[in-house]
Amino acid sequence: MRGALVALALVAAPVAAQELRPADAGRLAGWETSLGAALHGALAAGAPADVELLVESLSGVPGEIAPEGDWSCRTIKMGELSDLVVYAPFACRITAGEGGWRLEKLTGSQRMGGTIHAGEVPALYTGTAWVDGGPATDYAGLPPEDQTPVEPGQTVAQVGWFEQAGPGQARLLLPDPILESRFDILWLTR
């Protein structure tokens, strides 16, 4: 519920010198419902080894955010095309930036990058996802009212909540991605 209130407040408040797009604020406001529906399908029909990794990715109480450095990251997709898919590890990096941190997924054909905004826990994340060959623009450059992928690279907006459950584990919760799934988790480990 707190996440929904924060998301609604962000519609009128600037986010790191940019506005949160209205459709993205809506996705954030409904994140708990999206997660619940996606988890229901994933736990009921996912392969046991993938379910085990999903549970591990959600383990741990969120605390202080100090994410700078290199990470191993796995994308977990739930709902729509498949009940549960856990991808092999990729390389991610988080660096200090203005107003927070810059997260980048450095390997794989599906890439992403954006800002983890300093402040509340969980921390707001705004960014873009694209396939190799993109991105067409950053979050601020996307059309404010349109959720259609931008070329090159099928660049789409990403919004979510970043949580760190200790020095060696974090997760980025991404509700209602524009392409492929109902809910994504980027699970980061050191």
Rank of each mutant, 00 (worst) to 15 (best):
M1C: 09
M1R: 11
A4G: 13
V6E: 12
V6M: 13
A7H: 11
A9M: 11
A9E: 15
L10S: 06
P14H: 06
A16R: 14
E19C: 11
R21A: 12
R21H: 09
P22F: 10
L28I: 15
G30A: 15
E32V: 15
S34M: 13
G36S: 01
A37K: 05
A37F: 11
A47T: 11
P48M: 03
E52A: 04
L53V: 09
L58E: 03
L58Y: 07
S59P: 02
G60D: 12
P62L: 05
G63W: 12
E64M: 04
E64L: 13
I65N: 02
A66I: 08
G69V: 10
W71Y: 09
S72V: 09
S72H: 09
T75N: 02
K77H: 13
G79L: 06
E80T: 15
E80M: 14
L81Y: 14
S82R: 15
V86W: 03
V86K: 06
Y87S: 14
Y87R: 10
A88F: 14
A88T: 14
F90N: 06
F90A: 07
G97P: 07
G97Q: 11
W101F: 10
L103I: 10
L106G: 05
Q110E: 13
R111Y: 07
G114H: 12
G114E: 10
H117C: 06
A118R: 10
G119M: 02
A123Q: 13
A123D: 10
T128Y: 08
A129G: 03
D132A: 13
G133A: 00
G134L: 00
T137Q: 00
L142Q: 08
P144M: 01
P144K: 05
T148N: 04
P149Y: 08
P149C: 09
T155R: 04
A157K: 07
E163L: 05
G166I: 09
G166A: 11
Q169L: 05
A170H: 00
R171I: 04
L173E: 06
L173W: 04
L179V: 12
R182E: 03
F183K: 01
I185M: 02
L186M: 06
W187D: 02
L188R: 00
T189Y: 02
T189M: 01
R190T: 04
